[in-house]
């Protein structure tokens, strides 16, 4: 019992220390940002807890514009929205796609970027040379197609490409692993995913179908690009964040970040 008390008090002390070190409370002069931290290139938490990636650059840019200090809170994707509801942080910056359905629950800033989407198949697949969405939809009948859960493009496959056997994955690495092992015939994901995968040894036998699909092609399911998520009715913050984003877009800061992480410009112009 003595030892368990010792552990308890040691734990309590360490809690206090952690609490002091990584404070995440509502304070003036601080913008608290919720992000998932395990999305390559977008939101990556390193072992010491720093967040880097495209989303982090956007966040730091907004903080600089608003003259606030950025404070990142790294949490699993599914706990982000309820946590923001309960004021654990002020905004979510985690590559959130803006859709009408989700806007019932949270508010969004203006969109700042959108990534093009591509199908990927084995090089010797009959689908490899297809040129139009209609052709692809026809060829996908009865084929197994993989997407990542929680993305707008998973929704696109569900609603628009009927007749395909849809498989959903929790992470991009799992999707590409199953494409490589031959469990699925086709995979559908954003361009950064394919840039990475096709360059690896596993990806050598695969190729992108040369048909670029953008959010604007089907805004009702693919949404309107990525935005910063905010609590409903927080208009004061929304005005500020929108202004900051618009300035960053016009200054070319968003383009700069996009070029750095994706070697391509995914900026959506500010209206």
């Amino acid at each position: 019992m003595i030892s368990s008390n010792l552990i308890k008090s040691a734990f309590a002390t360490s809690l206090l220390l952690c609490a002091l070190a990584t404070g995440a409370s509502a304070k003036d002069g601080v913008l608290r940002i919720g992000t998932e931290g395990d999305a390559p290139k977008f939101s990556m938490a390193d072992p010491s807890g720093n967040v880097t990636g495209f989303d982090a650059d956007i966040a730091n840019g907004i903080c600089a514009e608003l003259k606030l200090k950025c404070e990142f809170v790294v949490q699993t994707f599914s706990s982000l929205v309820p946590s923001m509801d309960k004021d654990r942080f002020d905004v979510i910056i985690s590559g959130l796609g803006i859709t009408a359905e989700r806007q019932k629950k949270i508010d969004y800033s203006i969109p700042y970027a959108t990534t093009p989407l591509y199908f990927a198949v084995a090089k010797d697949s009959p689908l490899a040379g297809l040129k139009s969405l209609a052709q692809i939809e026809k060829a996908l009948q009865g084929k197994s197609v993989g997407v990542v859960t929680g993305t707008t493009y998973a929704r696109f496959m569900e609603k628009r490409m009927h007749g395909a056997d849809l498989k959903t994955y929790d992470a991009v690495t799992q999707l590409t692993a199953d494409l490589a092992s031959g469990r699925i015939d086709v995979a559908f994901a954003d361009s950064p995913t394919w840039m990475d995968f096709l360059a690896t040894a596993d990806g050598a036998n695969f190729t992108r179908i040369d048909l670029k699909i953008m959010a604007m092609d089907a805004p009702d399911v693919l949404g309107h690009g990525m935005g910063v998520g905010m609590r409903k009715g927080n208009t004061e913050l929304k005005t500020k964040v929108d202004a900051a984003l618009c300035k960053m877009i016009n200054d070319g800061k968003v383009k700069e970040a996009s070029m750095q992480w994706f070697q391509d410009d995914y900026t959506i112009p500010c209206k």
Partner: peptide, 18 residues
């Protein structure tokens, strides 16, 4: 990739954010 209760729940959560 198996669509049991939680599999569908995940889809529904990301779709509606509820």
């Amino acid at each position: 990739t198996v669509l049991e209760i939680t599999g569908y729940a995940k889809r529904l959560m990301s779709e509606t954010f509820a």
